Computed example of a mutant assay.
Amino acid sequence: MKPRIITGETLAAFRRHLQEAERRPATVAKYLREIQAFAGSLRPGQLVTKETVLAWKEALAQRCAPSTVNGKLAALNTFFAFLGWGECRVKPLRRQRELFRDPGRELDKGDYLHLLDAARKTGNWRLYYLMETLASTGVRVSELQYVTVQALNTGRAWVEGKGKGRLVLLTAKLCRTLGKYCRKRGIVSGPVFVTRSGRPLDRSNIWREMRALCAQAGVEAKRVFPHNFRHLFARAFYALEKDIAKLADLLGHASVETTRIYIMESGAEHTRQVERLGLVL
């Protein structure tokens, strides 16, 4: 049996494997980053064994949330499976299913409106319309590139993400608004939201612009990140329709169990519901 050592060659081979499996670039980068972090925890020349992986897992558990630890372990276990090091794989941390969402990280409609107002006052119309698009469609930030001038003409955008495709309907009002924006910016085809060089905006650019609005909008920065607009759409839709299966389809989720995470109620909402039972006299 060959010594189990993580080398540049094994990492390069694993990268190719993930790319051939059509994993998203962000996933590939994350997996490689986690593997390199584990490799950095080893002493020079130390072999990879079940014991070294368990020690790393225990060290992570002391300083990271269970979901964070499990994400790192998932990357490592995938790497080990690729190399045929099955005996080095470890189980994820067991944790109780979360029943309530964290209100401290929740972007509510009031926050959203304050952000729009701040973008309008600063004249950042690209970010203004981008936030409206995320919140009114529920698309992932990586799927914004599929909101194109052509899609505005039909009111339908075919988006692809995580190896799947789905149809996203764009409201007539959104199409009119974005159409005016494109005409003003001279965008005649392709993605609506682009850089000055014409390339689709990426997650880091969008997040940076959103964070810059927080102080003026009076919204805590920890609430403001692109994916939270997707959660805002999910909660608003579910509050109106109460149809989790349809919501899962709209969001592109393979399982409604994922969708449940998006629509978890807060502890305060649960308390109000229990109080309405009238069981405390």
Rank of each mutant, 00 (worst) to 15 (best):
T7M: 06
T195M: 05
E51N: 00
T259A: 10
T68M: 10
W158M: 10
K184I: 08
Q46N: 03
L178T: 09
A59Y: 00
R183V: 09
V149P: 02
W125R: 13
R23H: 15
H253A: 04
L170T: 07
L60H: 08
I187V: 11
A268E: 15
R230Q: 12
T52E: 04
L178N: 09
S67D: 00
S197L: 06
E269W: 02
G123P: 07
T27E: 04
Q46K: 01
P66F: 09
V139W: 04
T68D: 00
W158A: 03
T154A: 11
F38G: 00
R199A: 12
V274F: 08
A245D: 06
E87I: 02
T52Q: 01
D243W: 02
R23Q: 10
C88L: 10
L169D: 03
A13C: 06
G165Q: 15
G163Q: 05
F193W: 07
Q36S: 15
E51A: 00
V219S: 03
P3L: 11
A245I: 06
V274S: 04
L99A: 13
A248C: 03
R199M: 14
A245K: 14
L144P: 07
G190Q: 07
L279M: 12
K246F: 03
V141F: 04
E143T: 02
G179K: 09
W158R: 15
V48L: 06
A21G: 09
E9G: 02
G163K: 00
V149N: 01
R276I: 01
P191A: 09
L83H: 07
A172E: 15
N77M: 13
R260T: 01
R176S: 12
E87L: 04
T68W: 02
V90R: 12
L213F: 02
P92F: 11
R140D: 08
R120F: 09
L93A: 03
A212P: 00
L107I: 00
L247W: 09
R260N: 00
L115E: 01
A13L: 13
